[in-house]
Computed example of a mutant assay.
Amino acid sequence: MSFKIQKVEYFYTSVVDQPGEAYKFLSTLSKAGINLLAFTAVPVGPMRTQLSIFPEDPSRFMVQAKNAGIQTDGPYSAILVQGDDQLGAFAEVHQKLYEANVNVYACAGVTDGKGTFGYLLYIRPEQFDAAIKALNL
């Protein structure tokens, strides 16, 4: 299987859990010309949502977030795997990490319905170099 594997940086921010907050945030980024590789939103309490932002250009994102008054935490490192959606693609990635004794503490994947996929892997900082080596980055 053919994969494109890259180290990516991501940032967190949190918003009140109410309609329109993700829209407002994403619109602000769009108006600032920030292209995203990935984006997630998960609840972190009864009335808060944590947004994870994976900008294509982390330096530009940091400047634009500061200019817009957006408080962020990061950058942190993750691994983005993209490739052809074939049976066992996620398993193959995990096998390489397993064989290197690297723990994946969180991940999220999606297919586009047209034959390709994207997969985010969160690796603890102390194991990140081993993960990069195992995935031939």
Rank of each mutant, 00 (worst) to 15 (best):
V102E: 08
G74N: 02
K7M: 01
T40A: 04
L80Q: 03
N101A: 13
A41F: 02
D129Q: 13
E21Y: 06
I132N: 11
L29K: 07
A22I: 15
N67V: 09
P46C: 07
L37W: 04
A78Y: 01
G45N: 05
Y122R: 06
T13D: 03
M62Q: 13
V81H: 00
S52F: 00
V44D: 09
Y10D: 06
I123P: 03
M1T: 14
R60Y: 13
T13I: 05
E126Q: 14
A106E: 07
L29C: 07
I5K: 09
A108Y: 03
F90Y: 12
P55I: 02
P75F: 02
L87K: 12
T13C: 11
D84P: 08
Q127S: 09
K24P: 00
Q64G: 00
M47Q: 14
Y23W: 14
N103A: 12
E126F: 13
V44M: 12
S30F: 11
I5H: 01
F117C: 04
G45E: 05
Q82H: 08
T116W: 06
A65H: 06
I123M: 08
A91F: 10
K7Q: 13
A32F: 08
K133Q: 12
G83A: 02
Q71D: 15
L29G: 04
A131E: 02
K4P: 03
I123V: 10
F117A: 02
I53K: 01
Q127P: 00
L120C: 02
F11I: 05
L121W: 03
S30N: 14
M62K: 11
M62N: 05
Q95A: 09
K66S: 15
K24T: 12
Y98N: 13
L120A: 06
S27I: 12
Q64E: 15
P58G: 01
L121V: 01
I123W: 00
F117D: 03
Q95Y: 10
P125V: 02
M1L: 10
I123E: 07
V81L: 08
R60I: 10
V8E: 02
N67G: 06
R48D: 14
E21P: 00
G115V: 05
V81W: 01
P58W: 01
G83F: 06
S59Q: 13
G115H: 06
I53V: 13
A68T: 09
D57L: 07
R124E: 15
G74C: 03
K96A: 10
Q64C: 05
F39N: 05
C107S: 15
V42D: 14
Q64A: 15
A106S: 12
T72Y: 15
N103T: 15
L29R: 02
I123A: 07
Y98D: 08
V42M: 09
P43V: 08
K133C: 04
A91C: 03
K133S: 10
Y122T: 04
C107E: 14
A78Q: 01
D73R: 11
Q18C: 07
A134K: 06
I132L: 14
I79N: 03
S59T: 11
Y122A: 10
E92Y: 13
F61Q: 01
K24S: 14
N67Y: 08
E126K: 09
F11L: 08
E9I: 00
M62L: 11
K31T: 11
Y10L: 04
A78H: 00
S27N: 15
V16E: 14
E99K: 15
G113T: 01
N67T: 10
R124V: 13
F3S: 10
Y76I: 00
V102I: 02
D85L: 05
E56H: 09
V93E: 05
S52M: 09
N67W: 08
G33F: 04
